[in-house]
Amino acid sequence: MATTYSSAPSALAADDAVPAVHHISLADLGTALRQGWDDFKAVPSHAVMLVLIYPVLGLLLARLVHGYAVLPLLFPLAAGFALLGPFAALGLYELSRRRERGEQASASDALAVLRSPSLGAMLGFGAILLALFLVWLAAAQAIYVALFGYAPATAIPDFARRVLTTPEGWSLILVGCGVGFLFALAALCLSVVAFPMMLDRHAGIGEAMATSLRVAAANPLPIAAWGAIVAVLLVVGSLPAFLGLAVVVPLLGHATWHLYRKAVEPNPNPPSTPPSRSPKRSAADFPANLLQWKRRSA
């Protein structure tokens, strides 16, 4: 059973702006992933549709890098793009939240985040993650220039030879991965529960980031393991031309919501949910309706 953790007095921890956080275990990570998979199976057409732009954009980025002969940025683009994943999963959190309440989830329900009172905060934090992504790209470019100079690689074989068979290439791998790890660690600690909290509690950027940092401080080993799981799944999903991300991203998005539920004390006075504009079924429901997949409770 999870235990409550808070660095503040109990009276302050009960305040909506400073929720208490729980100690979680490695087993909780597996449970969150299983619950996320259940959510994905229950609304597969919606989830795939919501994140379809993710692999498409990845392919476009890869083509852009190849077309302009800036191959050194290909790996930083692919790796750093994961920094934006928590923001890309906003609609998935909403779907998991509605299923958790026993409500019917549809594609239009995922768009309810656009009517959330905390939309401005979510967009603002998304801009922060985008800025972190751009700084990472600049750092990666600076590391490459420091080791290889400004001369571009003429082709993929030439670039691979430079990176894999020269001392400068090994230095690039070690230094680049080390710096990238620091960026990923910062993004993980700041955002592990930030967006779900904004959606659930209508929290501001400061409160959401502070709670994420408190969760990471209370659970260093589980959060580190969660970061490793995210990294491995994103790599696996990226291997078949980024197409696997159409499954990996919704799985991680749904699982992040359930991880938030395990790590943060539930709000005793939850804010009201904006009503759906239309109860009609969306055309995006068609594949799920045709297959008649059995919905399972979270």
Rank of each mutant, 00 (worst) to 15 (best):
L147P: 01
V113Q: 07
F40A: 11
F242S: 04
G30L: 14
L290H: 11
A142Q: 12
P19M: 11
K262S: 14
V135E: 00
R162Q: 15
A210S: 13
L64C: 05
D285W: 09
L95G: 02
F286Y: 15
L90C: 02
S212I: 01
I223W: 06
A284M: 12
A160V: 14
L92S: 08
M122T: 00
T256C: 10
P167S: 14
V18G: 01
A241K: 05
A8T: 09
L52H: 02
N269R: 14
L239D: 05
V70H: 07
L123A: 05
A27F: 11
N289L: 15
W293F: 14
A82F: 04
T4N: 11
D38E: 07
A216Q: 06
A218W: 04
L61D: 03
A241R: 04
L234D: 04
I53Y: 11
L185M: 13
L185G: 03
A288H: 00
N219A: 10
G120E: 13
L61R: 00
Q141E: 10
A210I: 04
C177N: 15
A184M: 14
A146K: 10
K280P: 00
A241E: 09
L137N: 01
R261H: 05
P19E: 02
F181P: 01
A218M: 11
V193W: 07
R161P: 00
V230E: 10
A224N: 09
G126C: 04
P44C: 08
V43S: 12
A107I: 03
V215W: 03
A32N: 01
H254P: 05
A110F: 13
L61E: 05
R115A: 14
L59R: 07
